[in-house]
């Protein structure tokens, strides 16, 4: 499923371009927040279409969480507006919060309650009358552990439950903060599948993450945030085209028997000739194509890494 979606996106069928995506689920207009003299979010502007997955990337302290807090009504902007589903968040907090789901980075479940009780509690808070917690738990791979207290769960299971909790109300906009950070591959895959299923259902997903590969795999577009500002916002493919360098990495064996690396830049007029010459003159051991990662692009744009 992942591969299929990626192919569709790479083929240029970005959801932003479709006619049906004219409406925006999230709009940030000059959104600003400061803690005293420190400007955490500095007049940012962006729009996220309905049904789109936006990867929101940036190092610690870039202003990602503050942005999410303003978008979800947990903080009032010091300037600008956050508009969700056509409503000004600051003025319609409760209404907006009825239509969103939030999955926090740190586990904040009621650990002395069972998974079913946790989900039922939130379903009641959202006013959902008929809710099937067990089916939802099956979707995140927690079948068989529904009636165990959460305190007995592993980190991966708790995170899966957090994701399940965030979609209890079938949200129109889903905010996920590092949903797969530090998880085993099975749990990560389960969570990614749920994110894609939610997108397929029509939900807009705002995905905050450090994991560039995950962002690349899942996001229709990615936004790079640095020092309170959005420094780039586009599809992963466009960003790679604009900022990345594609190259052919070749390992050759010299006459003395030693291995040496050769690199040929792709997408230049000289590329065909360079490739032909290399293959005719050198003894080729391995050949790999290489394209820039989102991490490389982020470093190129901001001059700093994501984990700094």
């Amino acid at each position: 499923m992942l591969n299929y979606i990626k192919k569709e996106r790479d083929a240029g069928t970005s959801r932003m371009k479709g006619d049906k995506m004219a409406e925006y689920a999230i709009v940030a207009e000059d959104l600003t927040y400061s803690y005293g003299d420190l400007i955490a979010v500095d007049h940012i502007n962006f729009k996220v279409a309905e049904g789109e997955i936006l990867g929101f990337l940036g190092p610690n302290g870039a202003g990602k969480t503050t942005t999410v807090n303003m978008l979800t009504g947990q903080m009032k902007p010091k300037g600008g507006r956050a508009i969700l589903l056509g409503m000004d968040v600051a003025r319609n907090v409760e209404k907006v919060q009825g239509d969103i789901g939030v999955c926090f980075e740190t586990t904040n479940l009621y650990e002395q309650m069972t998974a079913v009780e946790n989900l039922n509690l939130f379903a009641r808070l959202f006013g959902i009358k008929s809710f099937d917690a067990v089916t939802l738990l099956n979707r995140v791979g927690l079948e068989g552990r529904e009636k165990d207290r959460v305190e007995t769960y592993s980190k991966g299971m708790k995170q899966r439950l957090m994701v399940a909790r965030s979609i209890v109300n079938r949200p129109r906009v889903l905010f996920l903060d590092e949903p797969t950070a530090g998880l085993d591959p099975t749990s990560s895959e389960a969570i990614r599948n749920v994110i894609l299923q939610e997108r397929d259902r029509g939900a807009t997903v705002f995905l905050t993450t450090h994991d560039m590969l995950e962002a690349d795999k899942l996001s229709d577009r990615v936004a790079f945030m640095n020092q309170g500002k959005i420094v780039a916002l586009d599809t992963p493919l466009n960003l790679k085209r604009q900022y990345g360098k594609r190259a052919l990495k070749v390992k050759v064996s010299t006459q003395s028997g030693e291995l040496e690396d050769r690199e040929i830049a792709l997408d230049t007029p000289e590329t065909p000739g360079d490739v032909q010459e290399l293959f005719s003159r050198e003894q080729i051991v391995t050949v790999h194509s290489e394209e820039a990662t989102l991490e490389d692009i982020f470093i190129k744009i901001t001059g700093r890494g994501l984990t700094e």
Binding site: G73, G98, V102, F104, N108, L125
Partner: peptide, 12 residues
């Protein structure tokens, strides 16, 4: 445990 924050992003 920040469960209050989880409650406060619902209509609570």
């Amino acid at each position: 445990r920040r469960t209050a924050h989880a409650l406060l992003v619902t209509p609570t």
